Computed example of a mutant assay.
Amino acid sequence: MRQLLDHGYCVLPGALTPKTIATLDGDLAPTFAQTPFCQGGFYGARTKRFGRLLARSPRAADLVMHPQILDIATEVLGPWCDCIQLNLTQAIALHPEALPQVPHRDQDMWRGTVGETEYLVNVMWPFTPYREENGTTLIWPDSHGAKALQPNPATDAVPIALDPGDALVFLGSTLHGAGGNRTDTIRRGAIVSYCLGWLKPYENQWLAYPPETARHFPRSLAALLGYRQHRPNLGNYEGQCPSILLDDRQAEPLGAIDALRPDQQALIDAHVATQRRTGR
């Protein structure tokens, strides 16, 4: 946490076993092969990307639900939300001759206040060795938080060397980008990210994992996907927590139930008490 908050990134060596990562890479191999190259200068014309990893391999849950990383994301984002949510899971294959990606901050996908709030925590998981030559993630240390308001970073980019099983954690306010792949091999990996529970996530989780899919996940994972409300009443289904959809119940008329923050509940309780007392 100290490294992450002080410098905008940290590396967790050996966060998962290489065998776990190799199994996930193998599960995703057919999709890597079938997925066309991206279009557009940001995604990269020599890059392949696809999401919905939790529906493609059971091993993806090992990345998403990593206990230490969940603790980190919850602590970083907790001051600005009731609960965090999964922002995306995305597999990435950087092919030979891929150009360096434009330096960017992922928090800029939302037009919120810069320099005061952390909106996002990213985790890069390499499937193959990540090195400067094959386009590893470039990080600009100390470019996060209030320093995101500065027109130019005060530090040079650092190529982060990673091996399968390592995890690179960095803030949504940290300037970063993929390097160019100057080798004749493909650099594969995945990014998992978590954001404030009241934001619109990058990946539409309810379409990626509809109720008939999500009900087979552990409840804690389904909650992270958005099958829970964020107070006050955000993300509800018919006025109730969307977790009711995980019970395989038929659609039926439902009564709305308040899900308020403590300050809002106190205000409502005082209002109701006053109305009852005065008869108005």
Results as ranks from 00 to 15, higher is better:
Thr128Val: 03
Ala60Glu: 00
Ile160Phe: 14
His230Ala: 15
Pro58Ser: 06
Ala259Tyr: 08
Glu116Phe: 07
Val76Cys: 00
Leu16Ile: 09
Arg280Gly: 09
Asp108Asn: 13
Phe32Ser: 04
Tyr194Ile: 08
Ala45Thr: 15
Asn181Ser: 07
Ser220Ile: 00
Leu138Trp: 10
Pro36Met: 02
Gly135Glu: 00
Gln229His: 14
Val169Gln: 04
Leu99Arg: 15
Pro253Tyr: 09
Leu171Gly: 10
Arg56Thr: 06
Thr174Gly: 03
Ile69Val: 13
Thr74Pro: 00
Pro96Gln: 03
Tyr209Met: 02
His66Pro: 01
Val123Gly: 01
Val114Ala: 10
Cys83Val: 13
Met109Lys: 07
His271Trp: 15
Ala22Leu: 08
Arg2Trp: 06
Pro30Cys: 02
His271Tyr: 15
Val272Gln: 14
Gly44Ser: 10
Val114Trp: 01
Ser193Pro: 07
Asp108Trp: 14
Phe37Val: 14
Gly226Cys: 09
Leu171Thr: 12
Arg59Lys: 08
Pro211Thr: 09
Arg276Glu: 08
Phe50Tyr: 09
Tyr43Asn: 15
Arg2Gln: 08
Gln205Asn: 08
Ala148Val: 02
Leu221Val: 05
Arg228Tyr: 07
Arg219Cys: 08
Glu116Cys: 11
Leu246Tyr: 04
Thr113Trp: 11
Glu132Ala: 03
Ala222Tyr: 05
Thr278Arg: 14
Leu254Cys: 11
Gly8Cys: 05
Arg231Gly: 09
Asn87Ser: 11
Ala266Leu: 09
Asp71Leu: 03
Phe127Ala: 09
Ala167Pro: 05
Lys200His: 15
Tyr130Val: 07
Asp82Gln: 15
Gln34Phe: 07
Cys81Trp: 01
Ala266Val: 03
Ala222Asn: 03
Pro253Gly: 08
Asp6Tyr: 03
Leu53Tyr: 04
Ser243Tyr: 11
Leu120Thr: 04
Arg105Thr: 06
Ser193Gln: 05
Ala223Val: 11
